[in-house]
Design a binder for these strands. Sequence first.
RNA 1: UGGGGUGUCGUCAAGCGGUAAGACACAGGUCUUUGGAACCUGGAUUCGGAGGUUCGAAUCCUCCCACCCCAGCCA
Length: 564
Amino acid sequence: MAQIQHSPPSDFIREIIEDHSRTKRFKGRVATRFPPEPNGYLHIGHAKSVCLNFGIAAQYGGACNLRMDDTDPSGETQEYVDSIIRDVKWLGFDWEDRLYYASDYYEQLYQYAVQLIKESKAYVCSLSADEIREHRGTLTEPGKESPYRNRSVEENLDLFKRMQAGECEDGALVLRARIDMASPNIVMRDPVLYRIKRTHHYRTGNQWCIYPMYDFAHCLSDSIEKITHSICTLEFENNRPLYDWILDGLKTECHPQQIEFARLNLSYTVLSKRRLIELVRKGYVTGWDDPRMPTIAGMRRRGYTPEAIRSFCERIGVAKNDSIIDMALLEHCVREDLNEKAPRVMAVLHPLRVVIDNYPESRVEEFDSPYHPQNPILGSRKVPFSRVLYIEQEDFMENPPKKFYRLSPGREVRLRYGYFIKCVGVVKDPKTGQVVEVHCTYDPETRSGFAPDGRKVDATIHWVSAEHSISAEVRLYDRLFQVANPMGEEGDFTKYLNPKSLEILTTCRVEPGLATIKSEDRFQFERLGYFCLDLKDSIPGRPAFNRVVTLRDSWAKLAGQEKK
RNA sequence: UGGGGUGUCGUCAAGCGGUAAGACACAGGUCUUUGGAACCUGGAUUCGGAGGUUCGAAUCCUCCCACCCCAGCCA
């Protein structure tokens, strides 16, 4: 099976890097980093950034660091660090020994701040948070200078030391950059560099009570790690002048180039950490790894493969346009990957009892059934066949419409890997009129799947032997939201949650071979979709499967059109 | 009504002054022991709009319009 070859990715960021290579801007060196804040789980949007940063490093012979951007102790935890490490690794990337923490730079960062003060480029401000906001001005009006802006270097040094020593209340003092209160760019109006926060830090404990702000910590962390290209999302474009101002002011040896790209948006879901946390906290989903979540952990549990996610991240491209990618593309990537490598097995989600009237009561046959129609390397297994079977309720219709060509009274179909059967009667529930059992006859001459007389059959349906199949739970997942862009609609986004995003089926029957699997391997349940064993919820003898994605279904499309 | 960005098919996205790639989606068709997969075909006379420069403009210039980001001691 040929691997799908995609053209080598090219985008404006790689163009910039190649330009830098030509002009020897960084002596031809390329170093990137993926810098998540450990205050939540990674999602598919992060995956885009991970693939970009690690991908670029690999492509240009450089390295990509994994850095925890942990500069705000509230909300950051070791659990999140662990999940990030697990997820990036699972995605298939390797940072070798380059796992860094901004919190490991606190001492250096502090010294840099002292240097800035000594050069009169930063000052300690005694204004309250409210006052600072009032002084900041608005989008159209310049700000006012703080009355503390011209404290002497000595006083600033002393005050900053006291901040650090824990002599002040939270919020009493902040360290600010002395830039320009009249700047049209609000970020440059004497931004706060350090704040006092007596909060326990998951790594440094109570060692520090002052913490650097993002703008101060990030550029310097990049510089300390000798990053060449600091790739981030568009909302930081306004912050780039500050990034450069700090590094210029400190005359650091390494001054990385910040480059911004558009963050990923995906239709029918939300991709902001705030919103995802809300879904988890308020119990709309069962956790960060709920298979409906767009988190790496959720998609993994759902059954998405790292290869599919990487392929998706490559195909969506990298640009500066705000965009919403169609979820259908992600699903396509998942199908494309799973089509190639998922073994085919048979499972009946909504069982309908079928009795083969002319098949001997106690007889059992085994049909050798290949795991993959195009790839014999995957091998085959034996599937037991007997007089009583289950087929999919949907595969039988007593009064079929024109284009329905599965089983119905008087019609003949092929059982996958087995005989032709013909419907000769139905048994109905006397109360409801529902068909509860279908009677068929089989043609012993069609064991090969073909009739010696050359007659054809319109459909092939899947089945399991009633006696030999095992019971399973199957969860059918659908899109989390009912609307393509929940954040673009009126009111609270949770209003648009899809009430049918999860359907739990408890009466499914699967072929016996599935009783013993233990890994998170994915299968194709023939004609239904791709399914993945749920390690968390399976119990011995009763597996639970998550539907990764359906197969493309032109019948459903047809049937849906006729309803309209 | 400041500053920073972005506008090319339904959704993404190439294009870098020489006459609109590709992918997904969609619509037809071939094939088929999965109504799957695979394969073939179809689609922007036009690039947010209006002017201008040019033999020639999605690409250059001018003006206009729309959308996104910024007034956390979050990142």
